[in-house]
Amino acid sequence: MRPGGAQAAALASSPSAAGETPADGRAGAPIVRLAGVGKRFANGVTALAGLDLTVRQGEFLSLLGPSGCGKSTALRIIAGLADPSSGTVEWSRDTGGGVPGAHDIGFVFQEPTLMPWATVFANVWLPLRLKGVSRHSARDDVMGALALVGLDRFADAYPRELSGGMKMRVSIARALVTRPRILLMDEPFAALDEITRQRLNDDLLAIKVRLGTTVVFVTHSVFESAYLSTRIVVMAARPGRLLETIDVTAPLPRGQDFRMSALYHEACEETSRALQAAIVTAGDSHL
């Protein structure tokens, strides 16, 4: 199912889509800046050391790297789900200065992370419900978010009745229902089959362009990052750090043409080479 439908219009008119954001993925002003961010866990493992990273308005940024490079940790630090052991996380003035409001951020986990006892509607309603919005008042926003991922007909279904790809769509709808400025995704499609994954990639790009949302996407797939991103940040492990940044200049959304283009293949090659360097740097002979 493709995103669309009449109800999607409600979300498309969200403030973040209005004017100042280049919808096709060209980067605008900085939203959040990580400066010298390090993370050391209680067990002594250093997940991140001195990470400098700026996320810009409207871009699709991928964090790519071998296991243990701290890409998920970096995402959790941006979300405020983990505190950095060193360094600073600085949000731009227009998110209200220091800490962004809870509803400026959408987060999608590797698993769909739905509440099995709640219907699809109630799952997507959750972020608004936690803000105190009644079921009735939330109805348009929830149905709009569901229409965006093509699941408005499944509002009354329970998660167990859905396929893996559909569950992930519900998870994305839930993250989008608050119309966040920045969408953080932690290897969201890693557990899906290749065909479902490609379709979700296309739909995600379409949604991203429609809403103008900034996306930070953690993945371990070279191809996925090259297809989706306007910028790829390749990270190395032990300790987790930024190794190389690759820009993919093709405008969003992309399609089958882009998959066949020289630009895409160059991006894949360059990213592969950077990833290989990251693996060698970390001395990961066991990978």
Partner: peptide
């Protein structure tokens, strides 16, 4: 409780 769901509730300031 699923730890990711707990994270989600934390994210939304529940």
């Amino acid at each position: 409780v699923d730890h990711n769901l707990l994270d989600l509730f934390q994210l939304y300031g529940a």
